[in-house]
Simulated assay, not measured.
Amino acid sequence: MTPHRTRTPAAALLTVAAALALTACGSSSGTSEGGSASEDSPNRTISTAMGDVKVPAAPRRVVVLDTAELDSALTLGVKPVGATHADVASGFLDYLPRDRVAGIADVGAMMTPNLEAVAALRPDLILTSKVRHGDRYAELSRIAPTVMTENTGYPWKENFRVHAAALGRKAEARRTVADYAEHAAEVTEALGGKERAAATEVNMVRFVEGADIRVYGRKNYIGTILADVGLGRPAVVDRAKDGFSYDVSPERIDLADADAVFHSTYGDPEKSKETRTTGSGLWKNMAAVKNGKVFAVDDQLWIQGIGYTAAGKILDELKKDLAP
């Protein structure tokens, strides 16, 4: 992605001010008291992590500042005018269809969005989360109505409903949720039914550059998908701090053993300890390795996507790898 040129503070302020003025010209009032308005009302009120926020009934220029929000928008048939880029070579996560993200303006890195670039797009809605950008809420909400969920990851289904409400796509969201539930049930049956799925213990391991190896617990995005299929989880996952992950060193990787182990890598394989760990005797002696039930998966898809489009692809991979 081509980086934005650095401008003087004065120039940046003028650009933001101009964009704010244009955005304000397109706004209108009139919202149902205490809840969502009808579809043909100029505005609706959305309950967010930062309180109630008025949004356009049919936003046309949406900017998303995280991967989950990008997945949600595209899943619901909304192409944002701008999005932050993930820490990957392609900018936007690779599992997203190239034609669906083509033309979306890059507004900076996920944790440090370029607010000048955001304002220049004249958005009428911004989607993000408090955990990512709560400290910039005042600045963002001066550019456009900003809808923030509290967190990301584990509450992804609840967050999707908030995104759908903000985008005016509740009907599409209901269809998406129903399709996902049907898809998950189909995978469960393909694995031999509920009892056989529950008897198959699965672990998700992530090698992270600059951190310990994570054995994912139940309270995260991938944990919820495994639960939706009804797969069993080894006892080690219940050691996870706050349900998120139980972190281990390469010397304790055998604790991650299960009937099947999926693993991904964030960062350099050497620096994340992936190369060292998967080449060790402890790893090679795990039952999952000996039984050919260890699967390297795409970190962007399994960990970073955090949405229904990603989840559908993960369900397909679970079926392919685990079906008898």
Rank of each mutant, 00 (worst) to 15 (best):
Asp257Pro: 07
Glu139Asp: 15
Ala21Trp: 09
Asp40Met: 08
Lys157Gly: 04
Ala199Phe: 06
Val229Pro: 13
Ala120His: 03
Asp268Glu: 12
Val208Pro: 00
Ala49Met: 05
Tyr216Ile: 03
Ala323Trp: 05
Asn291Leu: 07
Phe244Val: 12
Thr8Asp: 14
Asn220Met: 03
Ser245Gln: 02
Asp321Thr: 04
Phe92Thr: 08
Thr309Lys: 12
Ser38Ala: 13
Leu315Ser: 04
Ile225Val: 13
Asn114Pro: 01
Leu255Ile: 07
Ser38Lys: 11
Ala185Trp: 04
Gly279Leu: 06
Val118Ser: 05
Ile104Asp: 11
Ala227Asn: 13
Glu270His: 00
Tyr221Val: 08
Ile222Gln: 11
Arg7Asp: 13
Lys54Ile: 00
Gly217Lys: 03
Val297Arg: 02
Arg136Ile: 01
Gly210Trp: 05
Leu140Trp: 10
Gly243Arg: 03
Ser141Asn: 15
Gly193Pro: 11
Thr112Ser: 15
Glu116Lys: 12
Ile213Arg: 04
Pro250Glu: 05
Phe262Met: 00
Leu13Phe: 12
Gly232Cys: 05
Ile46Lys: 09
Gly230His: 00
Glu158Gly: 11
Glu172Arg: 13
Ser129Val: 04
Gly193Ser: 09
Ser141Thr: 15
Val131Asn: 08
Val53Pro: 06
Gly153Phe: 09
Thr176Glu: 11
Ala165Asp: 08
Thr200Ala: 12
Ala89Glu: 14
Glu33Trp: 03
Gly281Met: 02
Val202Glu: 01
Ser272Met: 10
Val177Ile: 14
Val177His: 00
Ser28Ala: 13
Met50Lys: 15
Leu22Arg: 14
Val63Gln: 08
His183Ala: 12
Asp71Asn: 06
Gly232Asp: 00
Leu226Pro: 00
Ile213Val: 06
Ala211Val: 01
Leu140Thr: 08
Ser41His: 05
Ala165Asn: 07
Trp283Gln: 06
Ala198Ser: 13
Leu13His: 15
Asp247Gln: 11
Arg98Gly: 03
Gly193Leu: 07
Tyr246Ile: 01
Ile314Asn: 01
Ala24Asn: 02
Asp298Glu: 05
Ala311Asn: 03
Asn291Tyr: 04
Leu93Phe: 05
Gly279Trp: 01
Ala18Gln: 12
Lys194Tyr: 07
Glu172Phe: 11
Ala311Glu: 07
Ala235Glu: 14
Glu201Pro: 13
Ala260Thr: 10
Leu115Met: 07
Asp238Cys: 01
Ile303Pro: 00
Leu282Gly: 05
Met286His: 10
Ala178Asp: 15
Thr152Phe: 14
Leu20Ile: 12
Asp316Tyr: 10
Val237Gly: 01
Asn285Thr: 02
Ala181Asn: 09
Lys54Asn: 03
Met204Lys: 09
Asp228Trp: 03
Ala109Trp: 12
Tyr154Leu: 06
Ala164Leu: 09
Lys241Ser: 11
Gly108Ile: 05
Ala197Trp: 02
Ala323Val: 01
Thr112Cys: 10
Trp156Lys: 11
His133Met: 06
Pro113Ala: 01
